[in-house]
Write a protein that binds this DNA or RNA. Structure first.
Length: 479
DNA sequence: TGAAATGTTGGGGCG
DNA sequence: ACGCCCCAACATTTC
């Protein structure tokens, strides 16, 4: 027996890094054949619960990851409760004297990790955390005056001027287990997804959660999609986006893996490559913002908006969540979200603009809804993007940039295929009228079997009036 | 990563 | 040939 296998085991604390490849904490924990104790903790505080859609994803992902660890000779321990207590107990049971994890960058996560790290070190443990969940640490980039970036373009310039994204690590080929195995809860104990009612039926058709699914989709994106990304990414009826977001959200693939795969793919031209990498770096930018503004999800970045008078119309909010606003492109998006746990990015902007500006409902209500229903819910991207649309965020769209849902529909879904896919009751409307059924001649509606107010709702608000109302409300806080 | 309102220009019809 | 009007098409400003 060599010295390394005689060393004490190390705990690897899994969080939103549900992968084996390019996993620095796992790599360090299992180095030189050291026995590793992987543990996933369902924390009751700290990071807070995931949204419903993401809990479904998490269950699928954990199931697969546990099987993959088994194949490598290891077993993931599942626990619920306070991380510090759990880690200490497991260390006791296994004789581990080191704890490793990959850093997370949401405020509550940072706080928990700081406390746990300090407490464990006090007790003599070796504790180490690793980068890799974003391309660069959120504090890495600073403006000339030493502050955080507030505008994306300079951030991108700084990023691409020194884009030394670390090369991804290989997956370990085998993992050694400790001689004493701690008790584990079961996935059923976590009660992630009951299946009653089975609201995730649509998810299963569409998604393959887990590291393998992530790698396969990435390859497919590079081979078949990336080279038309710049031109088609805004068309929601077309399969023209990477769909990497849910995999990134739970760390089933590392952003560095995506960065390098896309950077080095020979078949992608420079325009498409750059466009995609810029989108990937938006994710880093959002974490950069969140790091410097920990309350990004709840507080207007631009305090001027604190006085904005939001509407409290609950019926309107409910209609929005259910995809019953009467504006087809908005409703198609909201129904895609409900059915698939995901919404095309172009449509996210349209639906968000509608909630905030046409309905004048607080962007935080939208942020919450998306957080609960998106399989790719991400504390940084979601908060930053909602603030961006609202006009109160960093580098935000000006408030008066109000999307016209009919115009957006005919620009980006010209044939209406996207609307038809998610709003079957409008499927027989001709393209000319599909984005504004309320303006279609009666005969056309009748022919298509549409009865406004019965088979499909009349518009919740008149866009033109709503637009003017929003602009007026904005005037009030402008000075 | 908007849209609408307003301004400008230039070609063609026409008296 | 000329001025006038109309109105796309495009550009600029404003919200």
């Amino acid at each position: 027996m060599n010295t390394s296998t005689r060393s004490k085991p190390a705990i690897y604390w899994l969080r939103k890094d549900l992968r084996i490849a390019d996993n620095r904490a796992l790599w360090a924990a299992s180095e030189n054949g050291r026995a590793v104790v992987p543990v996933y903790i369902r924390e009751d505080d700290g990071n807070g619960p995931l949204g419903g859609a993401q809990e479904w994803w998490l269950e699928q992902s954990l199931k697969q990851l546990m099987a993959r660890f088994e194949k490598l000779g290891s077993r993931i321990i599942l626990k619920s409760g306070d991380p510090l207590q759990i880690l200490k107990t497991i260390a006791d049971e296994t004789g581990a004297e080191a704890v490793f994890w990959n850093r997370r960058y949401d405020p509550k996560g940072i706080e928990t990790d700081k406390k746990v790290k300090a407490a464990l070190r006090d007790e003599g443990f070796k504790v180490e955390s690793f980068a890799g969940q974003i391309l660069h640490e959120p504090s890495h980039f600073k403006t000339k005056t030493g502050g955080p970036y507030k505008v994306y373009t300079p951030f991108w310039k700084a990023f691409s001027a020194e884009a030394h994204v670390p090369l991804p690590l290989d997956a370990p080929e085998r993992l050694n287990s400790p001689s004493r195995q701690p008790e584990s809860e079961t996935l059923e104990d976590f009660r992630l997804y009951t299946g009653k009612p089975d609201w995730a039926a649509g998810f299963r058709e569409l998604w393959t959660p887990g590291e393998n699914g992530a790698q396969e989709r990435l390859q497919h994106f590079i081979d078949e999609i990336a080279n038309r990304y710049a031109g088609e990414r805004d068309h929601p009826s077309v399969d023209a986006t990477s769909l990497m977001s849910p995999f990134l959200a739970l760390g089933e693939i590392s952003p560095a893996t995506i960065w390098h795969a896309v950077s080095e793919a020979k078949n992608i031209d420079d325009t498409n490559r750059k466009k995609f990498l810029q989108e990937l770096v938006w994710r880093d930018f959002s974490y950069h913002l969140l790091f410097h503004a920990p309350d990004l999800a709840t507080k207007n970045w631009n305090g001027r908006f604190d006085d904005f008078e939001w509407s409290t119309d609950e019926d309107a909010y409910r209609a929005w969540t259910k995809g019953q606003t009467g504006y087809p492109i908005v409703d198609a998006g909201m129904r895609q979200l409900w059915r698939d746990g995901w919404m095309h990015n172009r449509v996210r902007m349209i639906a968000a603009s509608f909630l905030i500006k046409d309905l004048m409902i607080d962007w935080r209500r939208g942020e919450e809804w998306f957080r609960d229903t998106l399989v790719d819910a991400d504390p940084a991207s979601n908060a930053a993007s909602w603030q961006w649309v609202a006009g109160c965020g960093a580098d935000a769209a000006p408030f008066f940039r109000i999307f016209n849902p009919m115009l957006q529909g005919s620009k980006f879904d010209p044939d209406g295929d996207y609307v038809r896919r998610y709003i079957p009751e409008l499927a027989r409307l001709p393209a000319k009228h599909i984005h504004a059924p309320f303006e279609a001649p009666y005969a056309v509606l009748k022919e298509a079997g549409v009865e406004l107010g019965k088979t499909y709702p009349r518009p919740l608000v008149d866009h033109k009036k709503a637009r003017n109302r929003a602009l007026q409300a904005f005037e009030a806080i402008k000075g």
